[in-house]
Design a binder for these strands. Structure first.
Lengths: 218, 218
DNA sequence: ATAATATTTTAGACAAAACTAAAAATTTGT
DNA sequence: ACAAATTTTTAGTTTTGTCTAAAATATTAT
């Protein structure tokens, strides 16, 4: 697979929400910042290679083979993201561009050893699950903290609102990405939550909770 | 710089022995496993960009600007090699191909953080020096271990005698290329050395020492 | 249902980087 | 010095991935 082919495969994978639904030419073009005619050309090539199913005017979707390739790219991307954040002091919003490049490096040993080196992480710094070597996901569910049930055990994996005031609030309250969170109580009246984070109980408003993404472990 | 341009720059750099001497079109073609006519084309383009000086039929050499680029690529290549060997359990002869890919990843922060992460290594696993960020080398000198002074810190980089018995000896004593060596003591009487290698002290005869090349860090 | 609109494909061109075959310049051998 | 051999360049193609403009198909709105 060439670099360009891999980029298309990844785009089709993401647009297809992990599979199924055929993706429109225009959608791919938009996502890849290219022209629809270019997409048509590439999609024909990928079809010849058995990576996608394509019928003109009807959109495109990955074959089982194409999905395998997509998952291996996603796996590489997310493992590199973990490496960048955990070992090289990148912040979680700086990693994407670099991981985008690293994901194209070809070496099975490299990625297996990287996985081992990082302790076989299950999610990337944004909380998205990392496919295993054989293409399986640990189905981790990402949801807003405000949507979590009482008793939910999760990991703080992202923010919806990334404005400075909100980030500053998190910082001041020592809430960081990767922190485990347990939901203890939920107030009917205002939707505020009592949570346990870093072994400390605290109460947060509905507004805060609805801007924090958590990943539910099971 | 495109990937291809970077490869040419690196080839010209290496063939020019770190600078100076003009390099022939044929030599570049041979090194890059391509045709001389392709080299001519590319070299013209690089000349237009100010990366090389080129006069037809007279060969090509890097400009000061081109040398800067070459050094930054070499720096990346060698830092990645250190990473692969020290952190991901690659052996020193497996790293080249992968480092060849990683060296093209563009991110200043990535390489600076990697450097820091690895503890600012001065040489790669083959004992070749790693250019610093501003393009300086710690001029590494290669000499026979038997010629090294007490206290010398170096890296094992080659053998003079490459006969099976000698190589077998090295293997049995877990002395491998890339291993760092510290000279602790030198016996007047027979020239035998006490060295520290892989965090283990051992004594080796003058004969062994005079067949092992080491690269001295400073 | 059909005209208007939007999407997608086709056809033809272009740039980058490679190649082949032939021409030009340089180097070598006598 | 000059013919032969070698090296290098030029000219013309090819492939990959892109683009524009125009044609074809699908969707939507009346």
């Amino acid at each position: 697979m060439t670099l360009s082919e891999e980029d298309y495969i990844k785009a089709i994978y993401h647009l297809g929400k992990g599979e199924q639904t055929p993706v429109s030419t225009n959608a791919v073009a938009e996502k890849m910042d290219t022209k629809p005619s270019s997409v048509t050309d590439m999609v024909k090539k990928l079809s010849d290679k058995g990576v996608v199913n394509y019928r003109r005017y009807k959109g495109v979707r990955l074959t089982e083979y194409g999905r395998k390739i997509a998952l291996s790219i996603v796996r590489k991307h997310r493992l590199w993201e973990v490496f960048l954040v955990e070992r090289l002091h990148f912040s979680w919003d700086e990693v994407h561009e670099v991981a985008e490049q690293l994901e194209h490096v070809k070496s099975e040993k490299l990625i297996d050893e990287l996985d081992k080196h990082l302790g076989f992480p299950k999610v990337d710094p944004h909380g998205d699950p990392i496919p295993s070597k054989d293409g399986e996901f640990k189905k981790a569910v990402k949801k807003l903290l405000s949507d979590a049930l009482i008793g939910t055990n999760g990991v703080c994996v992202g923010v919806k609102d990334s404005s400075p005031p909100f980030l500053k609030f998190l910082d001041k309250n020592k809430i960081a990405l990767g922190d485990p969170i347990l939901v203890l109580e939920k107030e009917e009246f205002d939707g505020s939550l009592t949570i346990k984070i870093n072994n400390k109980e605290m109460r947060i408003s509905e507004q805060i909770a609805s801007n924090l993404f958590v990943e539910i472990i099971d």
